[in-house]
Design a protein around this nucleic acid. Structure first.
Length: 231
DNA sequence: CACGGCACGTCCATTACATCA
DNA sequence: TCTGATGTAATGGACGTGCCG
């Protein structure tokens, strides 16, 4: 890529052409391949930490210092870069997988909450629509919440960690207020329920009905999603 | 100036060998 | 001692870049 003609490098090539093992592969097994000493590796690693690519002059200098051929130093750096890259890919994968699992559980939680809210709305609508002919009207009205919570365990026992995960704060009494909502408020909630313009599906910018969480990470949709997140 | 050939570099996939459990 | 797994030095090919005629 960034290859400039360098007389020093050229000198190196001439030199390496004379090395015994170059082109003489699969011969003289024992001399052919020797591990570098700990000392050699240590110095190479130290240099690699500060520069992943070597200037031709630096390469010659390092080679002299370590008693290696410049070609060997170049190859070591090349292999070292490859190892570093594959490690990084592995690490990226792990991070991505953890993020995915976090998001998946968050999605599951939202799904459950959506279900419970829908159920809750249904029951509230029914109780509002009911004519006030019952003697026990008052107690029935009060019961709406209780009933809902009883019939809907996920609402009742929304896990605290789930709340934290969502960054939700219910301390503002949001969940206490719905019993006293006006008709207009309920109508607007009904609109929400029916049209779902703010549904979790739309919230994420794609159709969760396809259940992307059940699909593999190689799914382009999934990748696009993460790509968007990054930018 | 455009072009082709050469020298050299990097990356990547693969091979060959060493070492270890 | 043998064997399979793993790590790594080295090779070969493809391709990019700069220089030169």
């Amino acid at each position: 890529m960034e290859g400039k003609y360098d007389p020093v490098a050229h000198e190196e090539l001439t030199e390496q052409a004379q090395t015994p093992w170059k082109k003489k592969k699969k011969k003289s097994k024992m001399e052919n391949k020797r591990r570098f000493s700990d000392e050699q590796i240590r110095l190479l690693e130290t240099i690699f930490e500060s520069e992943a690519k070597l200037e031709p002059r630096k390469k010659l200098q390092v080679a002299r210092e370590l008693g290696l051929q410049p070609r060997q130093v170049a190859i070591w750096f090349q292999n070292r870069r490859a190892r570093w890259k594959s490690k990084r890919i592995e690490q990226d994968y792990r991070t991505l997988r953890a993020d995915y699992h976090k998001l998946a559980s968050r999605f599951e939680f939202l799904k459950k909450e959506k279900q419970s809210l829908i159920l809750q709305l249904q029951e509230l609508s029914e109780s509002v629509a009911e004519p006030p002919h019952d003697k026990n009207k008052a107690s029935k009205g009060v019961d709406a919440d209780t009933k809902c919570e009883q019939s809907n365990p996920s609402f009742q026992q929304a896990p605290l960690e789930g709340m934290e995960l969502l960054g939700l704060q219910f301390g503002n009494g949001r969940d206490m207020e719905h019993a006293g909502q006006t008709k207009e408020e309920l109508v607007s909630i009904d609109e929400y329920r029916n049209e779902s313009t703010v549904s979790p599906e739309n919230l994420y910018g794609f159709d969760l009905a396809d259940d992307i969480f059940d699909q593999s990470c190689s799914n382009p949709q999934w990748l696009n999603f993460w790509g968007r997140e990054d930018n």
